[in-house]
Amino acid sequence: MSSPCDPQNAPAGDVDAALMMIDSRLKAIYDGKAETDPEQQQLIDQFTASLGPEEANDMVEGTCTLVYMFMQWLRRACEERDRDVIAYVVPGFVTSMRLMTRSVRPEVIPTMAGLVVAAGTGLSPNLWRRQYGDWTGDEMNSLEATALLLAEHINRVTGDRDFATRMITEALSSSAQD
């Protein structure tokens, strides 16, 4: 039976812009900077301020697409080792989110955990979230943190700091050629 949250029913959004933001944050972390470079933060702030409602929505949808793609990769990696992706990813994810007290409000963590579980079970994170109403402002940092944590987890699993970004870039390139 088809689900209303089937990824085939979900818009992909602006995956390129979402990936650019996540990649930028990853590079800052790997360069040992807990905080984003002020100049880089200014560019990010200018970019996000320039987004109209439609572009902002596309960015949210693109970030949800990243969450889905990251969780699908993790699911396949877990299945190869007879692990359950939810049991393997979610506890560490929630623990990490709880430690991000300046970026993530505690009341948003269950929603982000649900988003990760939805993606891990093959549902569109964006369509799953839409069931519960519009996205809130408090969820935006948490959504970015969700994609960031999943990308960083993949990079740690593979031992390659650029693996998650490269995986998405290659997927986008191959879909553009098709």
Rank of each mutant, 00 (worst) to 15 (best):
G62E: 01
A145L: 08
D160T: 09
G120K: 00
C64H: 07
V67T: 09
F70L: 00
D6N: 13
M20V: 15
D160S: 11
S124Q: 05
E80V: 05
G133S: 06
V117L: 02
M167N: 04
R98P: 00
R130S: 13
N155D: 13
A118F: 03
D178S: 14
R105E: 14
A77H: 15
S3K: 05
S96N: 11
R105L: 15
E152P: 02
A12T: 12
N141V: 06
L150D: 00
A56I: 07
W128M: 04
L74T: 02
D162K: 08
A176L: 12
M167L: 14
P125C: 02
V89F: 01
A119P: 02
D45P: 04
S175A: 12
V116I: 08
V116C: 05
A171K: 13
T165F: 05
A171T: 12
M97I: 02
Q41A: 14
G133W: 07
Q72Y: 02
D45M: 11
M20H: 07
T158N: 07
R161N: 10
G122A: 10
L150S: 00
G120I: 02
A147H: 05
G122W: 01
D45T: 15
T65V: 06
R83C: 07
A119Y: 05
M97D: 01
S24E: 10
A113P: 03
D45S: 12
T169H: 10
T101D: 05
L66C: 06
I29A: 07
R156S: 08
Q72S: 12
L43H: 14
F93I: 03
V108W: 02
G32C: 04
P125S: 08
G122Q: 11
R76L: 15
F163E: 10
D162G: 06
Q8V: 11
A34T: 09
I22W: 01
A151D: 00
R129L: 08
M69R: 15
E144D: 09
E170A: 10
A18E: 12
